[in-house]
């Protein structure tokens, strides 16, 4: 059930030049949070910036010895709202609406001896950590592979968190300053080109910029790989009422059937469901 609550900031620290790690103390209700769900946060009790900002959940941390859950969010400072958020301190309070959205379906990857592949681009890396955490209870150590890509080495985030969740981590950077030089989709293609990688049928979970997800969906279609993608869009209400954050979807015959709400019907969609346009 969606709640509107006041959450206290426990941590808000820089983890790369423009990326912050935020930890919120949140009432127990948030233990129901699913990976891929998001929180809609009012950053200031003022009219500018006016709208809430949606943030995906990076992880849920149970505080030892109490019923208290902390929710971790990793965010990039991109504009007025996130700038103000980055200036908030421990003890400050935020008006939080959530949990929102559908979240990743983690049962789909558990059938038929599949290998689980997580693919994150830029800030899309962050929500896959919580997914990996949830999956590690059900999947053997080392069977989850995380492909993460950023523009440059300084922007790489969450590597240790993926390792803690038992993932094998593969890195790409556009400028080659770390790992594979090129896009994460290219790194992923290279991985798939090794016949051994298809010994187990891969199942994809991806989050990242639109062109990356589009490329992945083309690959998935070509290689008949199943999976889910999480998409991002400017949002109004966050609860499915305003129809501001919609995306075009297709049916199984590949014809466009209409708009779905990213905040309510998504943000996670079947990799073959979205119409990526020209």
């Amino acid at each position: 059930m969606i709640q509107q609550v006041i959450a206290k900031i426990v941590k808000n620290k820089k983890i790369s030049p423009s990326v912050n790690y935020l930890e919120l103390e949140i009432p127990e209700i948030f233990k129901t949070l699913l990976p891929g769900q998001f929180l809609h946060i009012r950053i200031l009790a003022a009219v500018d910036p006016l709208l809430r900002r949606p943030f995906s959940v990076n992880n849920v941390i149970k505080k030892q010895g109490s019923g208290c859950y902390r929710v971790a969010i990793v965010y990039k400072i991109v504009g007025k709202g996130t700038q103000i958020l980055s200036e908030k301190c421990r003890g400050d309070e935020l008006d939080v609406l959530g949990p929102l959205g559908n979240g990743f379906d983690i049962n789909s990857c558990l059938v038929k001896k599949r290998s689980v592949l997580l693919i994150g681009g830029g800030m899309g890396i962050a929500p896959l950590v919580y997914l990996a955490e949830k999956l590690k209870k059900q999947i053997k150590q080392g069977k989850i592979k995380a492909f993460i890509g950023t523009n440059t080495k300084k922007e790489i985030i969450c590597v240790n968190e993926f390792k803690k969740a038992g993932c094998k981590v593969m890195i790409s950077t556009d400028d080659g300053s770390a790992g594979f030089k090129g896009y994460v989709t290219e790194l992923f293609e290279k991985y798939l080109s090794d016949p051994q990688s298809l010994n187990h049928i891969p199942y994809l979970y991806a989050c990242g910029p639109f062109p990356m997800l589009k490329k992945l969906s083309e690959l998935a279609r070509k290689l008949k790989i199943e999976g889910q993608v999480s998409v991002d869009e400017m949002m109004g209400c966050g609860i499915g009422a305003c129809l501001g954050c919609v995306i075009k979807t297709k049916n199984s015959q590949n014809s466009v059937i209409g708009y779905k709400r990213i905040c309510k019907d998504g943000p996670v969609f079947d990799i073959n469901e979205l119409d990526w346009g020209e």
Partner: peptide, 23 residues
């Protein structure tokens, strides 16, 4: 009505623009 193409929202100082298109 399918509504308008996206993006449909933009934030402005103390306000917002919408063009949902009566979906």
């Amino acid at each position: 009505k399918p509504g308008n193409p996206t993006p449909r929202l933009a934030e402005t100082p103390a306000g917002m623009l919408n063009a949902i298109g009566l979906q």
